[in-house]
Nucleic acid binder design. Structure first.
Lengths: 191, 191
DNA sequence: TGTACATCAGTGAACGCGCGTTCACTGATGTAC
DNA sequence: TGTACATCAGTGAACGCGCGTTCACTGATGTAC
């Protein structure tokens, strides 16, 4: 049953991607190892050939999840229209109904935020790194301002977006949920 | 061992308060019934004389937790200085280091936000009600503006505060955590 | 290049444990007469 | 007001279940000669 090194590396990546999606979809505590492994097309026994513990998986899956959304907002991916238009696009993507309705593919800080605050030190380290990376991306889109002001505004904008998506997912009134996203967009792009 | 009706009502209240604090401290999934009952000074067997299920406890504990912070911000409690000073005080209280470091006594939407998004319908209903109640409180403090504008600004301010506290608890760099709270305060009271 | 053997990715059963929930039991409370 | 009995809050043991983790085993891969 042994696979080649290349195959094993692919398997590890597959587990990581499944874990990243499942944690974001159902939460960290509510997601079991068996569930993650099944989502990767494997049985649970094989997990410990690739990771030392669930905590390690959480940390790496969190890093994986952050990486994908950080990369999506990096300079090479900017659209025409200059930084300011990029900022507007970032806000509109983040606060879109699509993002709200796809936690499994969205921002880790919004989908498992309150669980991350109690996660193992390594997961918190990774999440902090992800947060500052995102802030850097956004600050670059606000480069019209003084660098320091751009960064402080980016910190605020990202926190506000994380809060808005989180609340828009809690609320059970669809109209209120949509309003929350709309208001957050309006306040952030008018700033 | 039977207690009087008055005693039983007090016990029920005690369970609710313990649950509300424990859920906010450790998260919903990570908190067991035995833990809640022990925190209330009881053994777990007696739980089902007061509640039908953990889900019901979550919903009622959530309502209990929201009630206390909604009441803390209601008009009778306003300080001198008029609405605008009240808004500033609300923001400074919510974004205080004290609130950040006391999830068990703080806002439910921040401490278990991402878990609430996946909670049972009744808990989400209760959380939604809590959110709109808080928005109403804040909007009243912004009454200088048009009512509609006050409300929309209150929605945004509350989301931003929830996001800021959540992130300030995730981040493992104390300086960054403090900066997040400071920046959020600055942006919200300057608006 | 061909053969013999060590490696190790993945399987599936099993581990102890704590979960949410149920239940027989207790004894003080509240009620009926 | 006093007595007999039903109620039911709280206990502590037990339920089945799924958790994270371990382990003996398998067989294809990679290595040594």
């Amino acid at each position: 049953m042994k696979k080649s090194k290349a195959d094993a590396a692919l398997t590890r990546k597959r587990i990581l991607e499944s874990a990243s999606a499942e944690f974001r979809r159902n939460g960290i505590h509510a997601t079991g190892m068996a569930e993650v492994m099944a989502a990767a097309g494997l049985t649970k026994g094989g997990f410990y050939r690739h990771f030392a513990s669930k905590d390690q998986l959480v940390s790496e899956a969190c890093a994986e999840g952050m990486k994908s959304i950080v990369q999506a907002g990096e300079p090479p991916v900017t659209r025409g229209g200059g930084p300011q238009a990029d900022f507007r696009a970032t806000v509109e993507d983040y606060l879109s109904v699509m993002h709200r309705d796809d936690p499994a593919g969205g921002c880790v800080l919004a989908s498992i935020g309150s669980e991350l605050a109690r996660a193992c030190p390594e997961a918190r380290r990774v999440a902090s790194k992800g947060f500052t990376d995102l802030v850097d991306n956004i600050a670059e889109q606000l480069q019209a301002k003084e660098p320091e002001e751009a960064r402080s505004q980016a910190v605020f904008a990202l926190c506000a977006m994380i809060g808005a998506i989180t609340v828009s997912r809690i609320v059970d009134d669809p109209d209120l949920s949509a309003t929350i996203l709309q208001e957050a967009k309006r306040h952030l792009v008018e700033t």
